[in-house]
Simulated assay, not measured.
Amino acid sequence: MQMLRNLLIVAALSAPVFAHAGEIAVQGRGVIEKAPDMAVLSLGARFQAFTAQEAMSEVNRRTQAAIRIMEKLGIEPRDMQTGNLYLNPVWERGDNRIDVARIKGYEAGNQLTVRVRDLTILGDALDEMVRDGVNAFNGLRFALQDPSEAMNEARRKAVQDAVAKAQLYAEAAGVELGAIKSFHEGGGGVPQPRFMARAEMAMDTGVPIAAGELSTQATVSIVFEIAED
Protein backbone atom coordinates (compact mmCIF):
# COMPACT_ATOMS: atom_id res chain seq x y z
CA MET A 1 0.00 0.00 0.00
CA GLN A 2 2.86 2.39 0.80
CA MET A 3 4.37 1.80 -2.65
CA LEU A 4 1.03 2.59 -4.28
CA ARG A 5 0.81 5.80 -2.32
CA ASN A 6 4.30 6.83 -3.41
CA LEU A 7 3.43 6.15 -7.04
CA LEU A 8 0.26 8.19 -6.64
CA ILE A 9 2.22 11.12 -5.28
CA VAL A 10 4.55 11.05 -8.28
CA ALA A 11 1.56 11.11 -10.65
CA ALA A 12 -0.03 14.00 -8.79
CA LEU A 13 3.18 16.01 -8.93
CA SER A 14 3.07 15.97 -12.73
CA ALA A 15 0.78 19.00 -12.30
CA PRO A 16 2.24 22.19 -10.77
CA VAL A 17 0.78 21.38 -7.35
CA PHE A 18 2.80 20.02 -4.43
CA ALA A 19 1.63 17.06 -2.36
CA HIS A 20 2.98 15.18 0.64
CA ALA A 21 2.74 11.51 1.53
CA GLY A 22 -0.85 10.37 1.91
CA GLU A 23 -2.22 13.08 -0.38
CA ILE A 24 -3.47 13.47 -3.94
CA ALA A 25 -2.92 16.88 -5.52
CA VAL A 26 -4.72 17.81 -8.71
CA GLN A 27 -5.58 20.80 -10.83
CA GLY A 28 -8.92 21.38 -12.51
CA ARG A 29 -9.82 23.67 -15.38
CA GLY A 30 -13.22 24.90 -16.49
CA VAL A 31 -14.00 26.78 -19.69
CA ILE A 32 -17.31 28.38 -20.64
CA GLU A 33 -18.08 29.68 -24.13
CA LYS A 34 -20.78 32.35 -24.37
CA ALA A 35 -21.97 34.73 -27.03
CA PRO A 36 -21.33 38.35 -26.02
CA ASP A 37 -24.23 40.63 -25.20
CA MET A 38 -22.38 43.97 -25.27
CA ALA A 39 -19.91 45.80 -27.49
CA VAL A 40 -17.52 48.57 -26.44
CA LEU A 41 -16.66 51.09 -29.15
CA SER A 42 -13.74 53.48 -29.03
CA LEU A 43 -14.02 56.12 -31.74
CA GLY A 44 -13.91 59.84 -32.25
CA ALA A 45 -13.11 62.77 -34.48
CA ARG A 46 -10.03 64.74 -35.44
CA PHE A 47 -9.76 67.78 -37.65
CA GLN A 48 -7.10 70.19 -38.89
CA ALA A 49 -7.71 73.89 -39.54
CA PHE A 50 -5.81 77.16 -39.80
CA THR A 51 -6.98 78.31 -36.38
CA ALA A 52 -7.27 76.49 -33.08
CA GLN A 53 -10.86 77.68 -32.64
CA GLU A 54 -11.93 76.34 -36.02
CA ALA A 55 -10.29 72.95 -35.40
CA MET A 56 -11.86 72.58 -31.96
CA SER A 57 -15.30 73.76 -33.11
CA GLU A 58 -15.38 71.15 -35.88
CA VAL A 59 -14.32 68.34 -33.54
CA ASN A 60 -16.99 69.39 -31.06
CA ARG A 61 -19.61 69.38 -33.83
CA ARG A 62 -18.67 65.89 -34.96
CA THR A 63 -18.56 64.56 -31.39
CA GLN A 64 -21.98 66.02 -30.60
CA ALA A 65 -23.34 64.49 -33.82
CA ALA A 66 -22.07 61.06 -32.75
CA ILE A 67 -23.65 61.46 -29.30
CA ARG A 68 -27.00 62.42 -30.86
CA ILE A 69 -26.88 59.32 -33.04
CA MET A 70 -26.23 57.17 -29.98
CA GLU A 71 -29.11 58.79 -28.11
CA LYS A 72 -31.43 58.29 -31.09
CA LEU A 73 -30.54 54.59 -31.13
CA GLY A 74 -31.35 54.27 -27.42
CA ILE A 75 -27.87 54.40 -25.86
CA GLU A 76 -28.12 55.76 -22.32
CA PRO A 77 -25.89 58.64 -21.14
CA ARG A 78 -24.21 56.34 -18.59
CA ASP A 79 -22.87 54.26 -21.48
CA MET A 80 -21.11 57.18 -23.22
CA GLN A 81 -17.91 58.87 -22.13
CA THR A 82 -15.68 61.40 -23.86
CA GLY A 83 -11.95 61.54 -23.26
CA ASN A 84 -8.50 62.19 -24.72
CA LEU A 85 -9.44 65.67 -25.89
CA TYR A 86 -6.44 67.40 -27.44
CA LEU A 87 -5.40 70.46 -29.44
CA ASN A 88 -1.94 70.53 -31.00
CA PRO A 89 -0.14 72.85 -33.41
CA VAL A 90 0.71 71.53 -36.87
CA TRP A 91 4.28 72.49 -37.73
CA GLU A 92 5.71 73.33 -41.11
CA ARG A 93 9.45 72.88 -41.46
CA GLY A 94 11.63 74.37 -44.14
CA ASP A 95 13.81 72.54 -46.61
CA ASN A 96 16.97 73.42 -44.69
CA ARG A 97 17.78 72.46 -41.13
CA ILE A 98 18.52 76.05 -40.25
CA ASP A 99 15.03 77.19 -41.25
CA VAL A 100 12.76 78.02 -38.33
CA ALA A 101 9.71 75.74 -37.99
CA ARG A 102 6.44 77.59 -38.18
CA ILE A 103 2.92 76.77 -37.11
CA LYS A 104 0.76 76.28 -40.21
CA GLY A 105 -2.40 75.22 -38.38
CA TYR A 106 -3.89 73.21 -35.55
CA GLU A 107 -5.24 69.71 -35.08
CA ALA A 108 -7.93 68.94 -32.53
CA GLY A 109 -9.31 65.57 -31.54
CA ASN A 110 -11.68 63.90 -29.13
CA GLN A 111 -12.48 60.27 -28.29
CA LEU A 112 -15.84 58.74 -27.43
CA THR A 113 -16.17 55.41 -25.65
CA VAL A 114 -19.59 53.81 -26.03
CA ARG A 115 -21.09 50.66 -24.55
CA VAL A 116 -23.67 49.17 -26.89
CA ARG A 117 -25.92 46.76 -25.00
CA ASP A 118 -28.14 45.95 -27.99
CA LEU A 119 -25.89 44.31 -30.58
CA THR A 120 -28.59 44.45 -33.25
CA ILE A 121 -27.99 48.21 -33.64
CA LEU A 122 -24.20 48.02 -33.73
CA GLY A 123 -23.74 47.91 -37.49
CA ASP A 124 -26.14 50.79 -38.11
CA ALA A 125 -24.58 52.84 -35.31
CA LEU A 126 -21.13 52.56 -36.86
CA ASP A 127 -22.45 53.34 -40.31
CA GLU A 128 -24.36 56.45 -39.22
CA MET A 129 -21.53 57.87 -37.14
CA VAL A 130 -19.02 57.49 -39.95
CA ARG A 131 -21.40 59.25 -42.34
CA ASP A 132 -21.84 62.07 -39.84
CA GLY A 133 -18.18 62.89 -39.31
CA VAL A 134 -16.55 60.29 -37.04
CA ASN A 135 -13.15 59.71 -38.64
CA ALA A 136 -11.07 58.09 -35.88
CA PHE A 137 -11.80 54.47 -35.02
CA ASN A 138 -9.70 53.12 -32.15
CA GLY A 139 -11.22 49.72 -31.53
CA LEU A 140 -14.19 47.44 -31.02
CA ARG A 141 -14.37 44.70 -28.45
CA PHE A 142 -17.16 42.41 -27.31
CA ALA A 143 -17.98 41.72 -23.68
CA LEU A 144 -20.52 40.28 -21.26
CA GLN A 145 -22.68 42.73 -19.35
CA ASP A 146 -22.53 40.43 -16.31
CA PRO A 147 -19.42 38.21 -16.53
CA SER A 148 -19.94 36.81 -13.01
CA GLU A 149 -22.43 34.16 -14.20
CA ALA A 150 -20.00 32.79 -16.79
CA MET A 151 -17.15 32.94 -14.27
CA ASN A 152 -19.13 30.97 -11.70
CA GLU A 153 -20.02 28.33 -14.28
CA ALA A 154 -16.33 28.03 -15.19
CA ARG A 155 -15.46 27.63 -11.49
CA ARG A 156 -18.00 24.81 -11.10
CA LYS A 157 -16.56 23.03 -14.11
CA ALA A 158 -13.02 23.49 -12.78
CA VAL A 159 -13.94 21.88 -9.44
CA GLN A 160 -15.76 19.04 -11.19
CA ASP A 161 -12.70 18.49 -13.37
CA ALA A 162 -10.39 18.38 -10.35
CA VAL A 163 -12.63 15.98 -8.40
CA ALA A 164 -12.94 13.67 -11.40
CA LYS A 165 -9.16 13.54 -11.79
CA ALA A 166 -8.65 12.83 -8.10
CA GLN A 167 -11.24 10.03 -8.16
CA LEU A 168 -9.59 8.55 -11.24
CA TYR A 169 -6.14 8.56 -9.64
CA ALA A 170 -7.49 7.05 -6.42
CA GLU A 171 -9.33 4.30 -8.29
CA ALA A 172 -6.31 3.50 -10.45
CA ALA A 173 -4.09 3.28 -7.37
CA GLY A 174 -6.54 1.20 -5.39
CA VAL A 175 -7.00 3.70 -2.58
CA GLU A 176 -9.95 5.63 -1.18
CA LEU A 177 -10.23 9.36 -1.69
CA GLY A 178 -10.48 11.28 1.56
CA ALA A 179 -11.45 14.80 2.56
CA ILE A 180 -10.20 17.97 0.93
CA LYS A 181 -7.12 19.21 2.74
CA SER A 182 -6.54 22.44 0.81
CA PHE A 183 -8.19 24.37 -1.96
CA HIS A 184 -6.76 27.17 -4.07
CA GLU A 185 -8.25 29.07 -6.97
CA GLY A 186 -5.88 30.08 -9.73
CA GLY A 187 -6.12 33.24 -11.75
CA GLY A 188 -9.54 33.57 -13.32
CA GLY A 189 -9.63 34.36 -16.99
CA VAL A 190 -11.26 37.56 -18.17
CA PRO A 191 -13.62 36.72 -21.06
CA GLN A 192 -11.55 36.55 -24.22
CA PRO A 193 -12.74 36.50 -27.83
CA ARG A 194 -13.04 33.09 -29.40
CA PHE A 195 -13.67 33.54 -33.09
CA MET A 196 -16.22 31.10 -34.45
CA ALA A 197 -17.49 30.45 -37.95
CA ARG A 198 -20.80 32.15 -37.32
CA ALA A 199 -22.21 35.45 -38.54
CA GLU A 200 -25.60 35.79 -36.89
CA MET A 201 -24.70 39.36 -35.98
CA ALA A 202 -24.13 40.44 -39.59
CA MET A 203 -26.56 43.21 -40.46
CA ASP A 204 -28.54 43.59 -43.67
CA THR A 205 -27.64 47.29 -43.54
CA GLY A 206 -24.73 49.13 -42.02
CA VAL A 207 -21.34 47.72 -41.16
CA PRO A 208 -21.32 43.87 -41.00
CA ILE A 209 -20.47 42.57 -37.53
CA ALA A 210 -19.61 39.01 -36.45
CA ALA A 211 -19.58 38.72 -32.67
CA GLY A 212 -18.26 35.18 -32.29
CA GLU A 213 -18.04 33.87 -28.72
CA LEU A 214 -16.18 34.75 -25.54
CA SER A 215 -14.18 32.20 -23.58
CA THR A 216 -14.16 32.44 -19.77
CA GLN A 217 -11.93 30.07 -17.82
CA ALA A 218 -11.14 29.21 -14.20
CA THR A 219 -8.53 26.95 -12.60
CA VAL A 220 -8.40 25.36 -9.15
CA SER A 221 -5.81 23.35 -7.24
CA ILE A 222 -7.13 20.84 -4.70
CA VAL A 223 -5.25 18.55 -2.34
CA PHE A 224 -7.17 15.49 -1.11
CA GLU A 225 -6.25 13.20 1.74
CA ILE A 226 -5.96 9.48 1.04
CA ALA A 227 -8.40 7.74 3.36
CA GLU A 228 -6.84 5.42 5.91
CA ASP A 229 -7.63 1.72 5.60
Rank of each mutant, 00 (worst) to 15 (best):
R61N: 14
E176S: 14
Q192M: 14
R156E: 11
N96D: 10
G74K: 09
I69F: 01
R155V: 14
I32D: 05
A210E: 11
E228S: 07
D95T: 14
A154T: 13
I222G: 05
V26D: 03
L168I: 08
E76F: 06
G44Y: 00
M129F: 07
D37S: 10
F47I: 02
L73M: 14
I209Y: 00
G212W: 00
G139D: 07
I32N: 01
E153T: 08
A15L: 10
V190M: 08
I98H: 04
E228M: 02
E200S: 09
I24V: 14
A199N: 08
Q160E: 15
F195Y: 09
G109T: 06
R156M: 12
Y169F: 15
M201H: 09
I32F: 05
I209C: 01
V134Y: 00
K157H: 09
F137T: 09
N6Y: 10
R102I: 15
I180L: 05
L119M: 08
M203I: 00
F195R: 10
Y106L: 04
K181P: 00
G133F: 05
V116E: 02
A158Q: 03
A25I: 08
R102C: 01
D127Y: 12
G133E: 02
L4W: 03
L85Q: 10
M201L: 13
E153I: 07
M1K: 08
Q64W: 07
G133L: 05
M196N: 06
E185I: 12
D99G: 04
M1E: 11
V10G: 04
Q160F: 07
L140N: 11
M201S: 12
V207H: 02
V10W: 03
E176A: 13
